[in-house]
Structure formats: C-alpha cells, structure tokens
Design a binder for these strands. Structure first.
Length: 458
RNA sequence: GAGGUUGUAGCUCAGUAGGUUAGAGCGUCUGAUUGUGGUUCAGAAGGUCGUGGGUUCGAAACCCAUCAUCCUCCCCA
C-alpha cells in the first residue's frame, strides 16, 4: 500500500518542529509569568461531554470514535438499531461513547466541574494540546491543530480580562507578530438584540455582524433581513456597527444608544474598566473595541476577544472570552470562567509567511567527529562523551567512508564544527578542528577541545 | 455539507491538434580523488504518468467514475 496521511493532518520535520517549539515556549513562559499552571486532559472525552456544547455545526465537526465490539453477535440487533439512529443524524452511545476533543475549554470545564471540591479558586490553568475537527482543510485550517489556552475559573473579577489582554500583547510582542487585539462585550450585543425585537434575535444578529469585515455592510443587512429582522431593526444594527472613532468615542456613543438598558450599561462599564486599566500599563499593541466582533461559541456571556494578524491574510489567530456559567453544563453552578486561546498552527503560518522566526532556533548538532576507522572510533567515543557531558551536542559519523560524504552530512545538518582525529592525531594527542562556517582549520590539543568550543574560539 | 483547482522520478515541474523507447533541473549513487567536502567532468539508478473503466488501430493527453490535494463558501483557531 501507498503510505499516506489522513486528510488535514501533517508530519512535522525538525525544522518545522523547532519553529513550533519556539512558539510553544514563548506562550508557555508568559502563561507561567502570570501564575497559570499546566494541565493536560485526554485526547478523547466521552461523546456526551462534548455534544451540544458547540452548536449544531460544532456537533457535526466533532470526530466520533467508533465503539469496539460492535461485531459481538449477542448485540447485533441493538447495534443495528443504534446504527439506524446514526443514519438519521442522531449520534448515540451504542455506536460512539468517545470522541476526540474539539477544543480545550470544554475539557477544562469538565475538569473543574469534577474537581471543584479540591481546587482552590480562582483556578488558573494553561493547556497546550492538539484538538481535532472534522472540517474541510484549507488555508490556515487543519483537522488536527494545537491550541494553547489560559483560563481562570471561579472569579468574576475583571482583573483577569485585563491580565489576559496583557498576555496576548506580551506573547505577540515576543514573537514579533504584528496583531490587532479586538475586544467586545456580549452584554452590549445582548442589549442590541433587545432593541431589535428581543433576546432570541441575539444569535441571528451576532452571526450576521460577525461577517462585517468579510462581506461588507450591504451583505450583512441582506443577511439580517433574511434572518427575519425588519427595516427599522436592521437600521438599528447598522447604526450600531457603524459606530467609529477611538475607544473613548465609541464608548460615549454606546452610552447614548443603550442608556435605558441595564445589561447594556453593565457591558459598557466593563469595557470601560478594562480599557482604562490597560491604558495604565505598557500594553503597546493597543486593545481596540470592535463592535462587530461577536464570536460564534454561544457560551460566552461577557467580554470577548479576538486576535488577528495584521498584514497577513489569515483567520483569527486567537480568541476567547468570559463564560459566566460554564460548569453549569456539568451540574456545578456558580463557577465563572474567562479564558483566551492561541491558535499555534495559524501563528506558525503567519510567522513563516512573514519570515520572522529567529535564526538562532535552528541550532542542532554542534560537533561532528569524522570516522577514520574502527580503532580511532574507540578513542573518539570517549571524546564525544566528554563533550556531551559539557552540554555540547555531538555526533560521530556512522562509518569510515571518504571525507567527501562526511562533509556533506555535516553540511546538510548545518553542523558548524568538524573534528578529525586519525592515527597521527591520536599519537600526538591533538585533534584537527574545522569550522565549516568560516572555512578555517586548526590543530589543537585534544584536551582543550571542549573548553575552546564553549568559548567559541575556533 | 456545496463549489472549484491540481495529480507525470525522492523534490520542483516540462510534455498533448492523441503516435515508436515519457523529459529537465535539483537530490541520490559510482568514478576522476587511498586524510580535507561545497566547484567541475564522466556515468548510473530511479516512473503501474493517482486509481478503475470507456472512446480509439493507438491514451500521460479525450470522456466517465473514484481517491487524494490545495483553495473558496459554511463555520472556525
């Protein structure tokens, strides 16, 4: 059979992996600076843990795992009945009890709900693991990709929104990715829905206005009408998303628009608080109010965030928000949450396109010992171990072939130093060191090798 | 779930008004070179032309199906 990969998945070569790890390290270090602690959850969850949490579209995109033992003759009839249900679009336990995780937020909520007795709240955790979606792959979209999430459970303080904004800003600054960090508040959108015929319009409105920067105002209006809003209501939405100016100007206009809506006023106050606090800090990638930002996931209840790379055509590379009753889905009431997520694979694509990965992260082997024969090999093994014990990554060429080949190996792997030790050098207690970057060569005392490599004097 | 693109050597790609034995560059291997590469030169290996069917005297090329790919929409990171 021809070897191949499942659709939407990728292998990662060392070059790619070093770049990805650079992103992981950067995010992780910032998370830890803010006191978040690591957590890992299983790749699979019970199907019922995930179903119904991401909307109808989301449910379709969850990878379900087929149960084992369906061929058990004793259960043949019930398996057939269960399968008929699947054909009607009704996923059920008889066919799939487990599914691959779709994001990191729901597993986190599940974890908090299961362990809230032991956790001291607020609980701040970060998680960096792959998630899977049965989506059609395309640019910036994979079926297996990594998310890096930082969430806080058990606190309604806006301090977390402020700090999460700072985390976003700090990570992208360290990575050198130019971004726009957008913020909005679901309570304001809620107030907008109230003005337009009631809260049940919320989803229709948010789905439509979320597309504003993609399809333009006219198409958004068309969509709103097709979703059942009348002309006056569409006009209200239009005046809402047309609000422009600085953050402060936008807030003032919102004050006017929602001066009689308690929830709306609360949302505006939250936004104002977060923005004014962030202004006191060194956040240099400014947080910007984006009133068309809605975010699809319907569990958000307060602040919502989205990060987009500027200057590169790519979907959002991060998102998040507050969900005041997440663990409620698992029967534990009263635990609020707020969190953000980084889409590592898209960040990678953006950085690769911009060519902004630092050169220094591609360091692999430092020294290659040439192989000049089995007698010399024993001697070289000892020297290599000594270098390794000093933290210098060292390889010995695997066979005593012509130097031509050994040089090519070093070149291909970008190994800067080649050390040649033959019978002459062993006798003299020296070694020949060649710097391939500078094309220089010196013979030095074998005992000085490690020291001089570490001092970079070769 | 809907629409489109592409599929030829390990990689990047040529190649068709349908015609003998399918090409190039890069890479790989061998030699020129018994301990000093990257240049050069000579040579070699490597292809069920995605798969299956059809049209034809004849198909990599035309038609149909299928699989894969990348992209767009939906939705999202």
């Amino acid at each position: 059979m021809k070897p191949s990969l499942p659709q939407g998945t990728r292998d990662f070569s060392s070059t790619v992996l070093r770049k990805r790890n650079f992103i992981f390290q950067t995010i992780k270090s910032v998370f830890e600076l803010y006191g978040f602690e690591p957590l890992e959850t299983p790749a699979m969850e019970n199907t019922e843990t995930l179903l119904g949490k991401y909307g109808d579209e989301g449910d379709k995109l969850i990878f379900k795992i087929l149960n084992n033992g369906l061929d058990n003759p004793a259960k043949k009839e019930s398996a057939k009945a269960d399968f008929d249900l699947v054909l009607e679009g009704k996923t059920n336990k008889g066919i799939t009890e487990r599914a691959l995780r779709y994001d990191l937020t729901i597993p986190f909520a599940r974890y908090v709900a299961m362990n809230h007795g032991q956790l001291s709240l607020p609980f701040k955790r970060y998680q960096m693991q792959p998630v899977w979606r049965a989506d059609r792959p395309q640019r910036g979209r994979y079926r297996e990709f990594y998310q890096c999430d930082a969430d806080v459970a058990g606190s309604t303080s806006l301090l977390h929104e402020i700090e999460l904004s700072l985390i976003y800003s700090s990570v992208f600054e360290k990575l050198g990715v130019p971004v726009a960090i957008n913020i909005n508040n679901r309570k304001i959108l809620n107030a907008l829905a109230n003005l337009c015929g009631g809260e049940d319009r919320m989803t229709s409105i948010t789905v439509a206005i979320d597309k504003l920067d993609k399809i333009g105002i006219e198409k958004v209006k068309e969509e709103l009408i097709s979703r059942g809003l009348n002309i006056e209501q569409v006009a209200i939405v239009e005046s809402f998303i047309s609000i422009e100016g600085s953050n402060e100007e936008k807030l003032e206009k919102l004050d006017e628009m929602f001066n009689s809506d308690e929830i709306g006023k609360q949302g505006i106050a939250e936004l104002r608080h977060i923005l004014s606090a962030v202004q006191q800090t060194t956040l240099n990638q400014q947080l910007v109010i984006d009133l068309s930002l809605a975010r699809g996931l319907n569990y958000y209840t307060g602040s919502i965030f989205e990060v987009k790379a500027t200057g590169v055509q790519m979907g959002s590379i991060g998102g998040g928000g507050r969900y005041d009753d997440l663990t409620g889905l698992f029967g534990v009431k009263g635990i609020a949450g707020v969190g953000i997520s980084f889409g590592v694979d898209r960040i990678y694509d953006v950085m690769d396109e911009l060519g902004i990965f630092p050169e220094s992260i591609q360091k692999g082997t430092t020294v290659l010992f040439f192989n000049t024969g089995s007698e010399e090999e024993k001697h070289i093994l000892k020297m290599a171990q000594e270098l390794r014990s000093k933290g210098i990554s060292t390889e010995i060429f695997h066979e005593a072939t012509k130097f031509d080949k050994q040089f090519k190996y070093a070149e291909r792997k970008n190994i800067p130093y080649v050390v040649i030790i033959g019978s002459k050098e062993i006798e003299a207690g020296t070694c020949m060191v060649k710097n391939l970057l500078k094309s220089t060569q010196v013979e030095i005392n074998a005992s000085e090798l490690a020291q001089r490599l570490m001092e970079n004097k070769l």
